[in-house]
Design a protein around this nucleic acid. Structure first.
Lengths: 188, 188
DNA sequence: TACATCATGTAAAGCGTTACATGATTCC
DNA sequence: GGAATCATGTAACGCTTTACATGATGTA
């Protein structure tokens, strides 16, 4: 009956991502964290500075981070607190993964049968091209210099997911082409 | 320069999902559509009745659907209009897939290195169990009677994605177990 | 001096969840 | 009569995006 405290029940993932970055890489400013989201968290979670700055203020109010120092140009360096570390740990081991899915690609897949085969082929071809671009982007993040080691497992997952989309697109294109051929065989 | 009209630029996916259902299955009430989301769109897009009812009203205002008839118990049957069909078609072929990703599982993958190997193993084991449950759920939706044919391609995609998560979890568990063994070899 | 980058914020609007609220009909 | 299901809605809150806004510092 005793429901765990509220942080187990609500979204919170932006907080967790920020705590994770501060935990892994040490104190940083909102500006640094915004860049980190763009650079190494882009395939995992997205947030802009307009979301990050106010969230850091709220997290400081809640004692999860604190302003460690203020540098040039009003730069504020945040550090994770022991309470913040504990919160991060609790979320990682205690938070039941949410089952919500909201995928535009899956929605297009769902609605594909509403289109003519030719149009459906165009849609899936575009999805495939996107997945290939994502795969290439992730590959670049990975191997050579790789200043970001934190994302090793997430990178592997991202690559596998992109490959899965490519494979699905290939299989779907094959099915659609069979259908296009059988529904209009006279043009051969 | 001429940006396409606003519907190309914003979210809209709930609208599209509703239009797709009305297009595929014919006129339906908000209640029916809510059930359809739960039953056949659950692995694609999620929405509850509190979101669907007001959205249908707005869509009627915009001329994409209309109240075709009113049945017992205040039941309102919505039908897609030609304009709605056109909007659905335009989105399918014209909307650039959004690149935003926000995945709690990927976030956990990213933060895995912040945990002890033992804890990380527990987290990944749970992710794997979830993916297996999702896979089984999708399998049930698929084969035998299958009153929902519309979701054929989306179902295939969902199964592939669930399998990918299972495969990633297995590979990650193997890596973590090697790490756990090498960091504490004396307990053998 | 002008432009790029660094660095921080606020405000408005839309999307999504949870809680609240109501009433009709059907089945036991 | 009571419970389950049918059927629709509103309100409050939180998350996310877009647009607006400001000023400091470095560099060509």
């Amino acid at each position: 009956m005793t429901c765990q405290s509220a942080y187990m029940l609500t979204g919170m993932s932006l907080r967790i991502a920020l705590l994770g970055l501060l935990d892994a890489k040490g104190p940083a400013s909102g500006y640094d964290l915004t860049k980190a989201f763009d650079k190494s968290l882009i395939h995992v979670w997205q947030a802009g500075h307009t979301q990050i700055y106010p969230e850091l203020v709220k997290m400081a109010d809640d004692g999860l981070v604190k302003v460690e120092s203020e540098g040039a140009r009003g730069r504020k360096i945040y550090a994770i607190t022991p309470e913040g570390t504990a919160r991060l740990h609790d979320w990682m081991v205690g938070h039941a993964p949410s089952t919500v899915v909201r995928s535009e690609a899956a929605l297009k897949a769902f609605l594909l049968t509403a289109l003519d085969p030719d149009e459906a082929i165009a849609v899936v071809t575009r999805i495939k091209a996107d997945a290939q671009a994502r795969f290439s982007g992730l590959e670049c993040m990975g191997a050579p210099d790789s200043e970001e080691f934190t994302g090793r497992f997430a990178l592997d997952l991202g690559l596998r997911q992109a490959q899965t989309m490519i494979d699905w697109a290939d299989a779907t294109l094959a099915a659609l082409e069979r259908k296009a051929a059988s529904s209009a065989p006279r043009s051969a």
